[in-house]
Write a protein that binds this DNA or RNA. Sequence first.
DNA 1: TATTTATTTGAATGATTGTTCAATAAAATA
DNA 2: TATTTTATTGAACAATCATTCAAATAAATA
Lengths: 200, 200
Amino acid sequence: MARPPQFDRTEVLEKATQLFWERGYRGASVSDLVKATGLLPGSIYASFGNKEGMFIACLDYYGAQGDALRSQFESDSSPLTVLRNFFFAIVEMAADGDGSRGCFLVNASLECAESDSAIKSKVRDCMGQNEVWIRDQIDAARQVGELSEDTDTTRLAGCLTGAMFGFRVMSRAQEDPDKIRDVASTTFDSLVTPWQQVAV
Amino acid sequence: MARPPQFDRTEVLEKATQLFWERGYRGASVSDLVKATGLLPGSIYASFGNKEGMFIACLDYYGAQGDALRSQFESDSSPLTVLRNFFFAIVEMAADGDGSRGCFLVNASLECAESDSAIKSKVRDCMGQNEVWIRDQIDAARQVGELSEDTDTTRLAGCLTGAMFGFRVMSRAQEDPDKIRDVASTTFDSLVTPWQQVAV
DNA sequence: TATTTATTTGAATGATTGTTCAATAAAATA
DNA sequence: TATTTTATTGAACAATCATTCAAATAAATA
């Protein structure tokens, strides 16, 4: 027997995420959030606790979108294709016009020092999930024989994750889209090709 | 016929850079800067114009240290060795205990949106100088025959720069030092080895 | 319809933000 | 030594910051 929230939580998180993504945690004020989401301060604090709580909710929302994106690529086609498709989907997001925002997680990770511990650990969570998924695809590719048995799957996953961080930085730094595509594809091929082999 | 500044500019820039590097542009307040540098607000504004001016001066200072570091590795030994030594010096800085600050330039680039145009362009300047230097070393290595004539030196320089961005992100994200070393060296080798050849 | 519970409102909070400025101090020239 | 020029001082500025809260509102149960 209570009044339900008037606003659509997803819609609010979407708008808040866009704002934080573009301006950063400290660069977006609560009154900016009020303007962007249409919520008044009281509602924000009732629903998210405080500004940090709202930011973490946005990181969560962004992380969940990452989950959705990744699972969208999963299929019964070859694991290496799944991995490649995902990788280059991210490349396109970075190269695209809106890529100048970079990756919300990477941005948040660099903006916040270790003293913002709640934010940092949420960021690490989401990044970790991504890296584990990548390693899972590599493991699967190895198991199917697309990659050599010698493949150090954890290492390769780490390298690809690092490469993705790299071109997301380039995209926020306003690098030429074609250069981002070029660097990303060259790096992907250089890292993966040595372990590739025809399926058994 | 005027009173000279009382403070050592380099000393002040060093302390301010440390602060901005750890906490970010918006995360470090002017009163934090006052505490860290020992300068009072009036002196800061007389010498640097405003907070943004001081931040840009710090980026400049950091960039100049990069110049110094790079030239420190230049020698008459092989260009590829120069490049490798520089690359792994940065790797060690990232893996080291103090690496949790990441790269000041990368941090600044991600924290600031395009609206912070003066900061953005200073960051791009310094990053550009770094990438050009890397390409110069690769060019030299190609000319000496350490790298194949087919080597696309601009592309390789871009890939190595991107890789360095990547592990600097990992270091700010508090990744395990040994993992950073592993990822960095694997990526370097994967990118460079295919073009390497015995000197003519 | 009356009551309960939660949300929304929007003004007000005190703290902190970046910045200014008149007064003071000190070095260098004349 | 007197004068000029700049640096330093540190209090004060208005603006903005994140946050709070009592009142008003609305849905759901009884």
